[in-house]
Write a protein that binds this DNA or RNA. Structure first.
Lengths: 129, 129, 129, 129
DNA sequence: GTGGTCTAGACCACC
DNA sequence: GTGGTCTAGACCACA
């Protein structure tokens, strides 16, 4: 059984991030319904309570809303999704740049490294489940 | 007193990372002596136990060695330091690329974003607290 | 379509409260006929089942009675309506006073705050949707 | 056994409100330590998990922070507390005024009712556990 | 000792 | 069927 969770971070946060990314990429389309709590629980191999917690977080972020007795629905406010994506992107860029500078790389070296890395790993993008 | 630790990650790991980066950047030069446990403890504002744990970690990584009665010393093996730096760099690159693709960016867009971001934030590298 | 329900409380209870207030204010006059279940359902944008449940509640409270084949009728017993109004009023007063004292306000401060608040918001009473 | 919870609202929210009020009234002073999760659990007669959830909410509101291995601490930022108190007060006033107007009372009648009610219940403020 | 996470299983209200 | 709350009990990392 391939353990899919990274250990250093709580499972529920990893799932929040995962589902959030899926929503941003519109794999769960705006206005659409998410799988039920129990369904996601078996899909992810975790306890329904954990999924519940994930949904709570997503709802608090505003990208999902729960309708009683019906299910969880992705927000229809697409501007919120793009805004969220931009925020996450900025965060990643900031974190990455800081780390690289911490390791002693100049801006030019950073860009050079990114280009080299992406060139080497071309075609590896799609083998994600 | 401004709390300097990020909360989500254990303090000792944050310190390991920080000191490790400083060693890599040769702010603690190879072969040099690290400040004493007590000294670091007051400097970081944490319990000496925590500093001990940090040193243990650094020693386990091989970039520091304890000489009894004298203190902790940075390794003189510079090749190890450069190897470590490369590993960390690769890790960051991998993580970053994965995140950005998860957000739906193509390789070209990633590079573009990095360039734009670094250009905007030029000169902001040194305001490290 | 602006969702008109507050989420934390069951829809049917929100509707009970709403219709109940309307009856008390005699917008539905004593002895008069309420709109049909189906009519209210489309008006409120909810399932007819939910409206049924609302009517059941109102009937249980005694302020509405169903005459088979004809519909739901507001009670003609006006004393009951005034009694109900007084009960609701007392409940609100009690709840409000308790909350304000919980926040640390003295009786004098409570009155003062109410006066100030009502003065500021004069004329805002009628923008009910 | 006197059941202390109101049933209509989830227990954890009732507790959030309760503790929040205590903090606002400085029964738990700024910078001070809250009783431990397990302690509060027996005090309130609920499961430790439920208390945990309460703490999560309070932390999200910013009026409490958790320090690993030490406990939960009330924020030292008193301005935040007074701001929160004002928000809660405004919310209560708004809700109350709306309800009373819904019941058909004019501003003058509302004030009159509040005054009469508070006069009658003088001295009843302190028999709260 | 502390807070935090996770599981298992139960029960509820809503639709 | 759905989401939401609560309990019981376990385990972990942190200080």
């Amino acid at each position: 059984m391939p353990e899919q969770f990274s250990g250093s971070q709580p499972i529920y946060l990893q799932l929040v991030q995962r589902v959030c990314r899926q929503i941003i990429r519109k794999e769960f389309p705006p206005g659409g319904k998410l799988p039920s709590v129990r369904e996601l629980a078996v899909q992810f191999g975790v306890n329904p309570n954990t999924v519940q917690r994930v949904n709570m977080e997503l709802e608090r972020m505003g990208i999902v809303e729960s309708r009683r007795g019906q299910g969880m629905f992705v927000t229809e406010d697409e501007s919120l999704l793009t805004r969220l994506r931009d925020e996450l992107k900025e965060g990643e860029l900031k974190r990455f740049a800081e780390e690289m500078r911490d390791l002693g790389y100049s801006n030019e070296q950073i860009i050079e490294n990114v280009q080299k890395f992406l060139k080497l790993n071309e075609g590896l993008s799609e083998e994600r489940k």
